[in-house]
Design a protein around this nucleic acid. Sequence first.
DNA 1: ATGTCACTCGACGAGTGA
Length: 259
Amino acid sequence: MLIATYNVNNVNRRLANLLGWLAARKPDVVCLQELKAADADFPAAAIRSAGYEAVWAGQRTWNGVAILAHGAMPVLTRAELPGDPDDRQSRYIEAAVGGILIASIYAPNGNPQPGPKFDYKLAWLERLARHATALRRTGAPVVLAGDYNVAPTELDIYPTRSWDDDALVQPESRAAFRRLVGRSWTDAIRTLHPDERIYSFWDYKRNRWPRDAGLRLDHLLLSPNLAGRLVAGGVDRETRGLDGASDHAPAWIELSDSG
DNA sequence: ATGTCACTCGACGAGTGA
């Protein structure tokens, strides 16, 4: 089973890019982030024509997450992250596909830091960690996939000092990610490629894509009962170089059918 | 310090978020 996560940075603006990538990569499950579309504006018909059913939690202008499944309707289990009834931002959706519980995650960016946006980011990641533990304890196989807006280590950002004050690389952000992953979850792409610089995001600014000045922000975390099924994974970085591309490229993993 | 992009409001530019 091929599971991917792709921050599309506006699903309607990026629809041609998304459909082209779906046709080429043929993933079984896709987690999308930054739809930047209200529920009524999600391009469900075009996505269905490409062979995918979808569930989504939209929001006008910002945020928005979805889960696509090839030839099957994802069974929605949750459309918001527990722990804060006042949180109106569409950053979490969860559904069952092919016997696996899939979450599509769009963690807050957190800039500028320090400040209320950074506080919200850290609190949101703590809520996610708590919910991840609850999911793990159900015993279900779980994949938590999405844009975590954290570059976990120095290997996950090109050598530079220019992001030192950015929320994506702060010690508090990295500690929150480490607490979430803990001893139980597997950062799939890092586990497959322990020593490689792999990026999934290149800022539009400052010639960052041509310079390969990227960060790895998009992660797929596997519950312990899935770790043994991980066979391959990577980032489709060529997607970032196409016309009208998102500033993120899709990250994907392949799980064996059983084990 | 700065470089982009796409949107919002409510005018043809400024502000916002990433």
